[in-house]
Design a protein around this nucleic acid. Sequence first.
DNA 1: GTTCTAACA
DNA 2: TGTTAGAA
Length: 145
Amino acid sequence: MESKKILHNVFQNIEVGIGEVSKVVGVSQRQLRYWEKKGYIEPISDDNSGVRRYNLSTLYLIVFIKEQLDNGFTLAAAFERSKDIKLKSKIVRTFFEHTFSDVEITDAEKGYGEIDLGDFRTEDGEKYHFKGVLDAHGRYVKIDK
DNA sequence: GTTCTAACA
DNA sequence: TGTTAGAA
């Protein structure tokens, strides 16, 4: 199997118990159960033991909500913001799908390189090839027609 | 020892 | 929201 898929599988199958989540993220178990009752988070559903397990994406959600809470937002506001972030992330991911196919290192010492961003088209259908460049001049894009 | 629900503070 | 009780 392709290593990319294996990794994806690994991350997809990571499960964390409520105790560990609580300890690591700094959210009480009581809060976690309350958020669940409110419908903001959901444990992995496949087991009927009644013991809560959370997957990676839920863990990210929990961390995000915790951060928002620390920044003074209410729980409801935090959740709304998480939905916003999730949608935006999806848009970005879709747009950049199958890009970043290659990165050429131009200066290993200084950490410079060129990222192949792939082909994009304009509204009119004209195609361009983009490269993201990082060098002594900073970061910019190169466009080839 | 951990996690569960429910209830009280 | 914290904390505790008693059970699983």
